[in-house]
């Protein structure tokens, strides 16, 4: 039964991908090679779409991959939708179960000195991981190493449009603290379209 299989495979992805959506990609590559549910070029398509839509990338990938797989087998859109839903539920199920357990344990042991010590160290490392992810995003979006190494012109290194927009948003949200972050997301999308950012 393909749906059980889909659930099982994506449950495994959810269980073993620790530390964010990008961690799911190697597991999906494995599925592609082992089971042939989708090709590697379809996978890069899925990554592109998952990154261009809202929502956790891992979840988006599961929905897309589940749809493709079931659609590929039954050649029917309803079957595809069901496949997408089954894969998504499979992916998030382990996280829900584990967090419920951790949450219970934390309530019980929150005064334990080892738990306190571990959380104390964990927060600092978590901070480092988030900063690292932030620097990674900036490296990709604000500077263009390819263009720089081709031309050797220092002005090609920086993506000025994007930098100006980022600085503008940063300053605006410092001044207008009441404005919802969602407003800035919509604003930046509109600016991107109007000024042809891509």
């Amino acid at each position: 039964m393909i749906y059980l299989r889909l659930f099982y495979e994506f449950f495994k992805v959810g269980l073993f991908s620790v530390g964010g959506g990008m961690a799911t990609i190697p597991f999906l590559q494995d599925i592609s090679l082992r089971l042939g549910w989708f090709t590697t070029s379809e996978l890069s398509d899925m990554i592109a779409v998952s990154e261009s839509t809202p929502g956790p990338i891992g979840v988006n990938m599961a929905t897309f991959a589940g749809y493709k797989t079931a659609f590929g087998i039954f050649n029917n859109q309803f079957a595809g939708v069901l496949g997408g839903l089954v894969a998504t539920v499979g992916l998030i199920a382990p996280a829900i179960i584990v967090i419920m357990l951790v949450s219970k344990a934390l309530q019980k042991f929150s005064d334990n000195k080892y738990v306190k010590g571990a959380m104390y160290g964990l927060r600092a490392v978590s901070m480092a991981l988030i900063s690292y992810a932030g620097l990674g995003v900036m490296k990709i979006t604000l500077i263009n190493l390819d263009a720089f190494s081709k031309s050797g012109n220092i002005f090609d290194l920086f993506v000025f449009k994007t930098i100006i927009l980022a600085v503008l948003i940063f300053v605006l949200q410092k001044i207008f603290k009441k404005i919802h972050p969602i407003v800035y997301i919509i604003f930046s999308a509109v600016v991107g379209i109007v000024f042809n950012f891509a």
Partner: peptide, 19 residues
């Protein structure tokens, strides 16, 4: 593509804010 390039600038700011 254009919208996402714009949003990526906002994402930088959002992560800085998170930090």
């Amino acid at each position: 593509k254009d919208a996402l390039s714009g949003i990526s600038a906002c994402v930088c700011v959002l992560i800085v804010n998170a930090v």
